[in-house]
Amino acid sequence: MSRTGRRVVLLTVCALSAGVATVKAFGGLGDDGAARTITTTVPAETAQVPLAPAGPTPSLPDGWRRVRDRQGGFSVGLPPGWAARRSGGTLVLRSRDRTLAIAVGADRSAPGRVAAPSAYAREAIESLRGYRGLRSSPSRTVQTAPYPGALATATGTYADTGVKQAITLVALQRRGDATFTLLAFRSAQSPQSPAQRVVDRIVDTVHAERPA
């Protein structure tokens, strides 16, 4: 598939007509926690692929609770003291001290159903909008996630606020169903290790469900 054919979709498909899916691609979080989006298009493929099993619902660490996004068709664990709300068509998780935010979405377009997670994560991180001086890393395989996945990172200055951010993007694919994306934002000045540990644990709790 060409790069254009694998164009990144971090949220849900909004419309489908004449073989082209119109989608909203995640562009960042504002100071108010609202998701910023851009609109782009991807060629819609019609090939069917076998549906991978959803698997058992992952257990949660002590004190966590499970949040279900019925529109997105997934659930995810929420750490103690964190808040969750839908914004701009995605589920935004935010830490109590507001130093870490994670946008979780499901892509059920043709690329989301079949694209390799490593390619998806790489192109997703490179396609982020609203940043100055965005520098991304190569994607790498996520070994312990509930679905085959890949992770990529980037740093850049968010143009709306002038704040330099460190960004982690994880793409998990239930083949034939969707790619679930977790896009984590923190200040580039804050420590990496504690934030990454939380992101890793949240990734481990993702579970595919039937969308509403």
Rank of each mutant, 00 (worst) to 15 (best):
M1E: 04
M1P: 00
S2N: 13
S2C: 09
T4L: 07
G5T: 00
V9R: 00
V9N: 03
V13H: 00
S17A: 14
V20T: 14
A21R: 03
A21M: 06
G27K: 03
L29S: 10
L29G: 09
D31M: 15
G33W: 10
A35C: 05
R36H: 07
T37W: 01
T37R: 03
T39R: 15
T40W: 00
V42F: 02
A44F: 08
A47W: 13
Q48P: 05
V49N: 06
L51M: 08
G55Y: 11
D62T: 07
W64P: 09
R65A: 11
R66P: 11
V67M: 08
R70T: 14
V76Q: 01
V76C: 04
P79M: 08
G88I: 09
L91M: 14
V92E: 06
L100W: 08
I102M: 10
G105C: 08
D107M: 07
R108I: 02
S118N: 06
S118W: 10
Y120H: 03
Y120V: 00
A121I: 02
R129V: 08
R129N: 10
P138E: 11
S139L: 02
R140N: 12
R140V: 15
T141G: 04
T144E: 13
T144D: 15
P146R: 06
Y147L: 09
P148M: 09
G149M: 01
A150D: 01
A154V: 01
T155E: 14
G156V: 10
A159P: 02
T161G: 12
I167K: 06
L169E: 07
V170K: 02
A171R: 00
A171D: 03
Q173D: 05
D177E: 06
A178F: 07
F180L: 09
T181R: 03
L183E: 10
L183V: 10
A184W: 04
A184L: 07
R186G: 09
S187F: 13
A188N: 14
S193M: 13
R197Y: 02
V199N: 01
R201N: 05
E209P: 12
P211G: 03
A212L: 12
A212H: 02
